[in-house]
Design a protein around this nucleic acid. Sequence first.
DNA 1: CGCCAGGCTAGCG
DNA 2: CGCTAGCATGGC
Length: 306
Amino acid sequence: MEFESGAIPLADLDGPFDLQATLESGQSYLWDRADGRMYESMDVHGGDAWYETVVPPIAGVSDDRVVVRVRQTDGRLEWEATADAVPILTHLLRLDDDLTAILDATPDDPLLERAYDAYEGMRLVRDPPFACLVSFICSAQMRVSRIHGMQMRLAREYGDAVTVAGETYRAFPTPDQLAARTESELRDQSLGYRAPYVRRTAEMVADGEAHPTEALELPYEEARESLKRFVGVGDKVADCVLLFSLGFLEAVPLDTWIQTAIADHYPECDAGTYAETSRAIRDRLGGDYAGYAQTYVFYYLRAGGE
DNA sequence: CGCCAGGCTAGCG
DNA sequence: CGCTAGCATGGC
């Protein structure tokens, strides 16, 4: 198999774009940097590194598995892929979002202003649902770089190999492929106590008992409850899947960094329970696009901002 | 060595 | 309901 190639002029987008900030901000753990320097430079933007991933079929976008490589350079998004990557990248990197309009709809707020300014052009992602679900089950009490390493390892150990232009890429394992592993095998891949969560969740999807995309039909808070059926998925992980895969841009994952931000900047939003605090901070961060604000704040604080 | 990392589950009151 | 002990692993 060989690559075809092309480029997307970034001037065509509504608003700015930053590939490095988008892929290294801890939203998606499914891309890898070809130079092996993922997460080594959170403070540097506009790098021109190549990123690569194997994309499963996406309903309404692409029928086949596609290997995609992409880099940002000279105001363009250059790509190499085993099919036309334009619709795929548009989907995965939310190139169809009007970031200017989203910024305009964001409330005036010192912290948000600093965060949006620091990582101008960062977009949310639309990860494939099953892989996103597994990624964030693995994310519990884990550093960003290790979450990424775990997903790369799962792909290397259990995913299908796809060879293109002499290089071998590994697809993220399917639900069947993960459900076929034992808990102890997954523990051996350094999943720790998350191993049974991943296995049982994969089994639920493989058996048709539940699928993460069922949440798409539901209003936001019911969608969150729907995802919590999966083992290893609580409120926070459910919000991550809703935001980074299923397009619920109002979802605000209440992780440790946002809890800190609430304590330091929005103490009136601490309403006790997750659900109530979630509503309060969602309103405070602008409602419909509150998840965008959350992700900027997360990255900004984690990189050392205040 | 101790502490912490994009939390969750099970079991208690 | 709300609350919390226990949970794996690796980097600093």
